[in-house]
Amino acid sequence: MKIRSITLMLLMVAVSFQVFSQEKSLKRKVAIGRFSNETQYSKSVFYDKTNDPMGKQASDILSTRLASTDKFLLIERQDYDKIVNELNTGGGVSQKIGADFLIIGSITEYGRKNIGEQKLFSSSKKQVVEAGVSIRLVDVSTGLVIYSGEAKGEAETTDKQVMGFGKSADFDATLSDKAISAAITKLVENIITKCTNNPWKAYILSVEDGSYIVSGGEAQGIAAGDEFVVMEKGKKVKNPQTGLLIELPGKAIGKLKVIQTTGNLPEEQISIATLTEGSVDAAKLDSYYVTQKK
């Protein structure tokens, strides 16, 4: 009897863990809108901000770090000005940008220095690169900055010669990558925490012959049989202190069950679902969003 009870408890823990894992497996859509170089390094008379090597380098490093966590679906959106215009239009913004969160970053500090030491029979030369990175994380559905952080990274290499023998300290271009990467790595954990603390959301794009077309598909972790809650957005009120519109908590008005997912590119994938509970007004789909069952 005791063994049976223990077995039952283990089974319940395993089922709970499976449900928990399933809830956490849905990926958030993240777009890196802009990563600029705000320092004077690598800027000449012919500098073109639309073709910024250091900014692209930092953007690629951040994309790689976020992708390696397997928690995000990354969407390439480098046309920053267009994104800002979309954010300012209000209403249905997430569908237009195609992302839940927008990351705006910049390299705020960059420096390279050589430190040498000369002794009687030996000499050493150290190259040190320091980089500072600033990042803002925007909740696309509200346009509000939900996280802002800065971090510094450092990378160095040392070459030593004894009585004229040994490796000479040549210019090491990889130190830039390492310093920027070190700074970004310090911020990634906070980005992950802020994104995953916000409820996963999707949107009803259309209603066709009783079937509900929902944004997101297999690449986000959605599968046939998944059930979601349809929420009606809360009323928006203006905060007199900040002048910003604040959306009040919404209310659950129905449930959807996924029949199938379709689409090739991750950003174009959709899910087809049926309404199993409640009712949805097809004329005001912008008033709803879909989230996980609690």
Score class of each variant (00 low, 15 high):
Gly91Lys: 10
Gly92Asn: 14
Gly92Ser: 11
Gly92Cys: 10
Val93Ile: 15
Val93Met: 12
Ser94Cys: 07
Ser94Asp: 04
Ser94Tyr: 00
Ser94Met: 07
Gln95Arg: 08
Gln95Leu: 11
Lys96Pro: 05
Lys96Ile: 12
Lys96Phe: 04
Lys96Trp: 03
Ile97Thr: 09
Ile97Gln: 08
Ile97Ser: 04
Ile97Glu: 03
Gly98Tyr: 00
Gly98Ile: 09
Ala99Phe: 06
Ala99Asn: 05
Asp100Lys: 04
Phe101Met: 12
Phe101Ser: 11
Leu102Tyr: 05
Leu102His: 09
Leu102Val: 12
Leu102Trp: 06
Leu102Gln: 10
Ile103Asn: 06
Ile103Cys: 10
Ile104Trp: 00
Ile104Ser: 12
Ile104Gly: 08
Ile104Tyr: 00
Ser106Ala: 14
Ser106Phe: 01
Ile107Phe: 03
Ile107Lys: 02
Ile107Pro: 01
Ile107Tyr: 03
Ile107Asn: 08
Thr108Gln: 05
Thr108Lys: 04
Glu109Thr: 11
Glu109Asn: 12
Tyr110Phe: 15
Tyr110Pro: 01
Tyr110Ala: 03
Tyr110Val: 00
Tyr110Asp: 00
Tyr110Leu: 14
Gly111Ser: 14
Gly111Lys: 07
Arg112Lys: 11
Arg112Tyr: 04
Arg112Gly: 00
Arg112Asn: 02
Lys113Ser: 14
Lys113Gln: 15
Asn114Ser: 14
Asn114Asp: 13
Ile115Gln: 04
Ile115Gly: 01
Ile115Ala: 07
Gly116Asp: 13
Glu117Ile: 10
Gln118Pro: 00
Gln118Ile: 15
Gln118Asp: 12
Gln118Met: 14
Lys119Glu: 15
Lys119Pro: 04
Lys119Met: 14
Leu120Phe: 09
Leu120Val: 15
Leu120Trp: 07
Phe121Ile: 15
Phe121Val: 15
Phe121Glu: 11
Phe121Asp: 12
Phe121Tyr: 09
Phe121Arg: 06
Ser122Asp: 11
Ser122Phe: 12
Ser122Trp: 13
Ser123Leu: 09
Ser123Pro: 02
Ser124Lys: 10
Ser124Asp: 08
Ser124Thr: 07
Lys125Leu: 10
Lys125Ser: 14
Lys126Met: 07
Lys126Arg: 13
Lys126Phe: 03
Gln127Asp: 13
Gln127Asn: 10
Gln127Ile: 07
Gln127Met: 13
Val128Leu: 08
Val128Cys: 01
Val128Glu: 02
Val128His: 02
Val128Thr: 03
Val128Arg: 00
Val129Phe: 01
Val129Cys: 01
Glu130Asn: 10
Glu130His: 00
Glu130Ile: 08
Glu130Arg: 01
Glu130Phe: 00
Ala131His: 02
Ala131Gly: 06
Gly132Asp: 04
Gly132Asn: 05
Gly132Val: 09
Gly132Ser: 08
Val133Thr: 13
Val133Leu: 06
Val133Asp: 03
Ser134Ile: 04
Ser134Val: 02
Ile135Phe: 04
Ile135Lys: 02
Ile135Asp: 08
Ile135His: 05
Ile135Val: 15
Ile135Ala: 11
Arg136Thr: 13
Arg136Glu: 15
Arg136Phe: 06
Arg136Ile: 11
Arg136Gly: 07
Arg136Tyr: 08
Arg136Trp: 01
Leu137Asp: 09
Leu137Met: 08
Val138Cys: 07
Val138Met: 06
Asp139Pro: 04
Val140Gln: 07
Val140Glu: 12
Val140Asn: 02
